[in-house]
Design a protein around this nucleic acid. Sequence first.
DNA 1: GCCAACGTTGGC
DNA 2: GCCAACGTTGGC
Length: 159
Amino acid sequence: MGQWLIKSEPGSFSFENLLAAKEQTTVWDGVRNYQARNFIRDGMKMGDKMLYYHSSTAQPGVVGVAEVASEPYPDPTQFDPRSRYFDPKSTSEQPRWFAVDVRALEPLPRPVSLAELKEDSALGGLKVTQRGNRLSVMPVSRAEFRRIVRLSEQEPGGA
DNA sequence: GCCAACGTTGGC
DNA sequence: GCCAACGTTGGC
């Protein structure tokens, strides 16, 4: 089973929005970066766990756990001329962009802030804290995933 | 709002 | 294929 971190701006679609969605599930569409596309198309499997990260907000950090709730499939918005994600170069025979369904599982006991992710020595390899990283979807290791959940079960900055 | 970092585009 | 221009991301 794989583990992932996905970013969302809470002003657009927060973890709370996902929890409130029908069956706590939404289509994770609109990814328009090739590297992130490859992670979705070639890496994601139903049941993979995801850390839900809030970006572009006053308190950036990981706020919840979700799971991949479908196999990857062509992102429908690429075929919709009215969508902001419309891609005229994409065809149903050769779709360029992929989506998965994402289901919220649980909020973390408390958010784990970006500052904490940066400070934690066990998380030095985490892509989200690396300079200039702008991927909205990235893999995390099993150990990293567990560590972040573990941090959320502890007091901030605590043992 | 600012700005650094990065991906994409398009002229050549 | 190079590279400058441009748009976007995202922390601060």
